[in-house]
Design a protein around this nucleic acid. Structure first.
Lengths: 267, 267
DNA sequence: CGGACGTTTGAGCATATTCAACTGCGGTGG
DNA sequence: CCACCGCAGTTGAATATGCTCAAACGTCCG
């Protein structure tokens, strides 16, 4: 067997919080293992999976991992950095489908024989693991645990898209932005990062496209949230100062101009 | 003796008139086989799949196939009739996620160990085939063709949701309705039904919830489309009189009163 | 220092919502 | 058989939310 994790040739990549020495070796030692495919499969199964996984040299900001129409069926796991997936609209701009943080999977929309229906672009210098889907499928068919995990992440993906649709559905602009920020905060918490300090790697334009709004609206709302004391906005750094208020606005109608809505600043 | 060709074609899938003898026997003899899981798997493999599939007694209008939070992992294939999937919103109403016609799969959002994140309700008296997901998974792991097909339908599901998001994204109300009607027409064509005569099994409220609009807007737009000569609306029967105009409006061309519409896509 | 870009801010406008009344059809019961 | 009620859908007028257009701002980079 070809034992070596054939990707240790990559030199260290700078990111703030992630320990790349631990990451680089194998799925077994990956800090994201619990979030990724290997979660809950045995040690020797892990080895078989390890052989499929290819490392990629860092993807630069603005570079696409795959494009709409391409058909190389591969799954990607974000290791560091972040991506956006989007489709091009006839009128020139994009519909952003999602933002993808470490541990998230990309490429589920082009399973074998299908073509990608969206593009995935790095929002900053990022690294991914890459798995040829056909190989993964073969191994998974022999490892019920892995197979189950594969179904689970696909199921999760459906859940994410459904959430997105609910948000776009009939919610007002302030609620949309609140949902977005709150969800980002939750995801950071899950990654072990500070949930109160968001480091937005995406532009305002991306956020607007994701929320189904226009950039000016997003900008104005950021301002309103700040004057309302909910956020502290400093370009792409956003600090959440009143999580309860943010949550409240995400869940329903709320006017952020109303500064004193209910003296709530507990956490 | 009012026997029209269109009526006969309609009856191939319409609820009341289904030939249950032909349908009930097996996947091999099912009129929907090409659209369903069995597509492109061999004859003996089909037998193994057949044993997993359970028939269900017809589901009455308003009855749910599964509800948010329930966790029996089963896949359903719509045989006749139609369903809507939706999530309940805190403020009382629903966000409709999709409408499901014969050949469509339901239940992909609650693969093993997960709970359903939406509910599925019959819009009329409908029938489904039911497959326990765990059993299907086991069989599929031994039949690469079936496995591939399973991935394919999941991939298709992602594509559908993405389309929905694009529509909700930044499109104006007329374009949304046009997309909805056009998509319905396409799906009818794929089922061998008359693509020009839509028999809406869902209420205006459902349509509005699906499109992210309010019921009045949908109603008004139906009217506008009719006076523009694009549609002929008769309660829940909608006939498409100008498919090109409908398509144009779906792509962003506005002004349903304007018959002249042949602009090329700009960038 | 200048130019470009991403972002913010402002004023006016248009689209879709809200609120409200009304229609037509279907069912139910007198 | 008809009168009644109820529900789904339609229509109208007024409002408001988010968009368009436009300009200014700050920061990054040459």
């Amino acid at each position: 067997m070809v034992t070596e994790a054939s990707a240790v040739r990559e030199s260290a990549v700078a990111t703030e919080v992630i320990d790349f020495n631990a990451l680089r070796k194998s799925c077994g030692s990956c800090a994201l293992a619990q979030l990724c495919l290997p979660a809950s499969i045995g040690a020797d199964d892990l080895t078989r999976l390890d052989h499929l996984v290819q490392q990629r040299k860092p993807t630069d900001r603005g570079t696409t991992l795959f494009d709409t129409g391409s058909s190389h069926a591969r799954l990607y796991v974000v290791r560091s950095g972040s991506f956006k997936t989007y489709v091009d609209l006839p009128d020139g701009d994009h519909q952003v489908l999602g933002f993808h943080l470490p541990g998230d999977l990309l490429g589920l929309d082009a399973l074998p024989s299908e073509r990608h229906r969206c593009s995935a672009e790095a929002l900053e210098r990022s690294t991914v693991c890459e798995v040829p889907f056909n190989d993964l499928s073969v191994v998974a068919s022999k490892l019920p645990g892995l197979q189950q995990q594969l179904y689970r992440v696909m199921s999760d993906q459906f859940a994410l898209e459904q959430e997105h649709m609910v948000m776009m559905g009939r919610r007002q602009a302030p609620a949309r932005l609140a949902i977005f920020l709150h969800s980002l905060s939750e995801r950071r918490k899950r990654l072990g990062l500070d949930p109160l300090e968001l480091n937005l790697s995406m532009s305002r334009q991306d956020i607007a496209n994701y929320l189904g709004l226009v950039i000016e609206t997003v900008s104005r709302l950021m301002g309103r949230f700040q004057t309302a004391g909910v956020l502290e906005v400093e370009r792409r750094i956003v600090r959440i100062r009143d999580m309860d208020a943010l949550r409240a606005m995400a869940h329903g109608g709320d006017t952020p101009t109303d500064t004193q809505k209910s003296a709530s600043s507990s956490s």
